[in-house]
């Protein structure tokens, strides 16, 4: 996977990712229009398919709203890479098919706007300047869930 980085700080909460007033919607397209609205206006138009979000510690803290990872998915983000993630967000993102990669040290090495390459199999992120950062590789079943586009599609495939 290759793409541009949108870099954010520590404790990026779900109200920043998707403010409460948009929880009345369930549609991915509608939700994605308001992604990261707390910090960036019109994030969606700036992000291209395959781009990455890089965060600091405790990314996704706050509410259990699955609308947040759905909004990120709708922007075409291929993975969120952070120092650490909040618990409910971690499960929700995996369940909707957004890979979360835990890469301690990432926020000191990667800059906003940088082009990076992520090797899911090797568990390595390659920076524009050629630096390598390791992330905790995901187990095979989680990769299958993500490749299916989320838990429900995965379960449906299993049942076929």
């Amino acid at each position: 996977m290759k793409g541009k980085v949108f870099k954010f700080g520590n404790d990026i909460d779900t109200d920043i990712i998707l403010p409460g007033r948009y929880l009345i919607y369930t549609d991915e397209e509608e939700l994605s229009k308001h992604c990261m609205e707390g910090l960036v206006s019109d994030f969606k138009s700036q992000a291209n398919d395959g781009d990455f979000i890089v965060g600091g510690t405790n990314f996704g803290c706050g509410s259990s709203r699955e609308h947040a990872p759905i909004a990120i998915k709708g922007c075409g983000i291929s993975a969120v890479i952070a120092e650490s993630f909040a618990r409910i967000f971690y499960r929700n993102a995996t369940n909707v098919g957004v890979p979360l990669l835990e890469a301690p040290g990432i926020s000191e090495i990667i800059e906003d706007g940088e082009e990076i390459e992520v090797d899911m199999e090797k568990g390595i992120i390659l920076s524009e300047s050629g630096k390598e950062i390791e992330f905790k590789k995901l187990p095979p079943f989680m990769l299958e869930i993500l490749e299916s586009g989320g838990l429900i599609s995965y379960l449906r495939k299993q049942n076929e």
């Binding site: 909460d13 109200d15 409460g20 007033r21 929880l23 609205e37 707390g38």
Partner: peptide, 25 residues
């Protein structure tokens, strides 16, 4: 959670007995 009633506008300050004070909450 800033979705229903009694929202605050730009530059306004709320003192609240609730549980979260995130940006835009």
């Amino acid at each position: 959670l800033g979705g229903h009633t009694g929202l605050i506008g730009p530059e306004e300050v709320s003192l609240s007995t609730s549980n979260r004070n995130f940006k835009g909450r």
